[in-house]
């Protein structure tokens, strides 16, 4: 099962990527843990998760081809 991950703002800076593909993750919690293992720097950041363009607060089941966005707040202006 392929999931598209999008990183925004400081998360893209921390991971060095703005998008990547992840296989075999069934829900957002599993995805979050996997990404924290792959990119330990992410632990320092607060972010919200959006699945298919909707912000989700609770663990959410993922389906083939879903896009999951990791969104930090921005400070600048």
């Amino acid at each position: 099962m392929n999931i598209n991950v999008l990183f925004f703002g400081s998360l893209a800076d921390a991971t060095g990527k703005s998008r990547l593909e992840i296989n075999n993750v069934s829900d957002t919690e599993t995805l979050r843990s996997k990404l924290l293992r792959d990119f330990p720097k992410l632990e320092k950041y607060k972010f919200v998760i959006a699945v298919c363009k909707h912000v989700v607060k609770a663990n959410t089941t993922l389906h083939e081809g879903d896009t999951v966005a990791f969104l930090p707040p921005f400070a600048g202006g």
Partner: peptide, 24 residues
């Protein structure tokens, strides 16, 4: 959207990390 702020205000403002003139 963001119930709580970042753990610390990292180097996140324009004066510190730069900004392209046209974006704002």
């Amino acid at each position: 959207l963001f119930p709580s702020p970042p753990l610390l205000e990292l180097e996140d403002n324009c004066s510190e990390i730069g900004v392209l003139g046209v974006l704002p």
